[in-house]
Design a protein around this nucleic acid. Structure first.
Lengths: 345, 345
DNA sequence: CTGTTAGCGCCTTCAC
DNA sequence: GTGAAGGCGCTAACAG
């Protein structure tokens, strides 16, 4: 009854209503690029909500060449770590006034490339990329001159900007903590060899072991996917061995959770029979039984740094940011003096 | 060196190269709306990849009025249930040839509305909405004539299309299963009263209890947020009581996981001292210790139905789809005859 | 300070 | 079967 057409109000409607030109409407809506007289501005503002005007983002994107959207590509959004990271990323992106396109590559290299191209077609302003492996083909983005930051599964030789924790130092610290407990027989569940993330965490563990001059039984070195399923499978194999290690470093949190499930299956008590430490540090490890000691990634920092990199003006240099981690100690790696139940909020 | 400019190739470049008009290029790119001669088509196709042409999605959106994007609004993507659902939704959306805009409202009603408006500005083709509460303000979407489907946290009186499981029947079945075990003292951890989802699950439990003529000790009815933290808090309160129930129905999976953590804290054995059943059924309950019996939501079906609703031509009717659930039995609710360790893949 | 006017890249009706 | 041309809604010079 308000006489509104089914089609949205445009700048022209506002201009007509306010008795100005469309340019002025733009100026007030965008606060520039030219100044507007106080009185005119008020008239325009009044007209805007009298007409119920809301700018069309698509038209703006086309005209300005800036789409106002960033894209996020992840191997699997249902993976708690990626989900937690996505949460932080979305917030950082929103703070930038942009929207976020979500692409779930479902661990498929092919789909990953499709998504990248799809996003590029939409004039995306920047891409946050977590690859299926460490050798993603991001040439299309570079060619298009679109900012791209690789997260988590990084290859430092790629000549692409990236943000990740110091995986080597993190796993080194975790392993050393285990060693500090007095454990000497320490195993590892590694991630897939095609991920540098996995290799680095492996390396940290190896370094700590070598430095402490601890022997490693090859049967206690298992390799599995970075998933709960993988962790459980590794556990099942491990627990079928005649002799168990005293401790295990699970290369990621999902594996640790799976390992715990296997332990329960086999009646292996944690930490009494087996101490566990892991990497990532989402809520999953806090609420596991027992709560798991873990290297914690600073997701919030990672997200902020990554989005800031995207926001840089073009013609920037490649930067590979490495974040610090923290160690969160919980019951899974054994008793700590004067630290009863350290898992409150 | 290829002489490529920094700007992308457009339809016009293709047309020139192929010696046709831009319209023809459109016809072949979109397979319509007009037919094109075999020979011409080939020339155009050749020109397209000679020039390296890729259509501009933004321009297409503006000209056609169809943005090619759906929006998803969730209270918190780091919540495993929403993440698992998002995974399925992304797949369904991709199958439709669209991209997905992710909005994380961070449990904030205000941010939720902001996101909705932001999406609407971008001429979104449809919105998948999981509200912070059961009374979301989606009028803006309806006014704009944009398709919208509410998921999970549904209000059946709202006159808006929705997709969700039958929460009442699910919790009724879960509770009945507990009763079938012979438990008579059965408690519940309810979700927040402002969510119909929570109320319905409550109702299912109540109905089953009443029907079995079982008394309910009011101290065994706890209300908490749908989070791990909430579940743990409820557990801590429960386990401080002089007498425990024999079983508890945790209204969602996150609560159940938190409850398990509290049980470990208090030395309460599950299922020996306390049987647990819950609702949702993501991988979380499979990998918990012990694995948790749960009502499983058909996420894949929910996603497909929801996206199909969005894809309907305008002028459709409101449909409120209710999905069936399945019951997944695991060790947490007690021993089941002839069902040893039912948690393989 | 304000108005005019080309585009942005593509879709689509309408002629030929 | 093909081409010409008018938008889609907005930005950003360029004039006044």
């Amino acid at each position: 009854m308000t006489g509104k057409k089914s089609t949205r109000a445009t700048r022209e409607d506002v201009a007509r209503q306010a008795g100005t030109s469309v340019a002025v409407v733009s100026y007030v809506v965008n606060g520039g690029p030219r100044p507007v007289a106080e009185a005119t501005r008020d008239r325009v503002l009044a007209a805007i909500d009298s007409v119920g005007y809301s700018p069309n983002g698509i038209a703006k994107a086309l005209a300005s060449g800036v789409s106002g959207a960033y894209g996020l590509i992840v191997p699997d959004i249902s993976n708690p770590f990626f989900a937690a990271l996505a949460h932080e990323l979305e917030e950082a992106v929103a703070a930038e006034g942009k929207v976020l396109l979500l692409g779930d590559s479902a661990e498929s290299k092919e789909r990953e490339e499709t998504l990248l191209k799809l996003f590029l077609q939409r004039q995306i302003d920047g891409i946050l990329f977590i690859g299926v492996d460490s050798k993603p083909d991001v040439r299309a983005a570079l060619r298009a001159g679109v900012q791209l930051v690789i997260l988590d599964r990084v290859d430092n030789d790629a000549g692409v900007s990236s943000v990740a924790v110091d995986n080597i130092a993190g796993s080194y610290a975790a392993t050393n903590h285990l060693i500090g407990h007095g454990y000497t027989r320490i195993g590892i569940i590694s991630g897939p060899g095609n991920l540098y993330t996995a290799r680095d965490r492996n390396l940290g563990w190896e370094t700590a072991m070598a430095q402490a001059q601890l022997e490693v039984d090859p049967r206690w070195r298992l390799e599995e996917n970075f998933s709960r399923h993988g962790g459980r499978e590794a556990g099942r194999r491990l627990f079928s061995l005649p002799q168990l290690p005293e401790a295990v470093f699970a290369s990621n949190e999902q594996q640790a959770v799976g390992l715990l499930a296997a332990a329960a299956e086999f009646g292996v008590r944690v930490p009494e029979d087996l101490a566990i430490m892991t990497f990532d540090g989402t809520d999953d490890s806090e609420y596991a039984t027992p709560a798991i000691s873990t290297v914690v990634q600073p997701l919030n920092e990672i997200a902020r740094v990554a989005v800031n990199l995207l926001a840089r003006p073009p013609g920037h240099e490649v930067v590979q940011h490495e974040c610090d981690f923290t160690l969160r100690l919980r019951p899974s790696c054994g008793p700590h003096a004067g630290q009863p139940v350290p898992d409150h909020n």
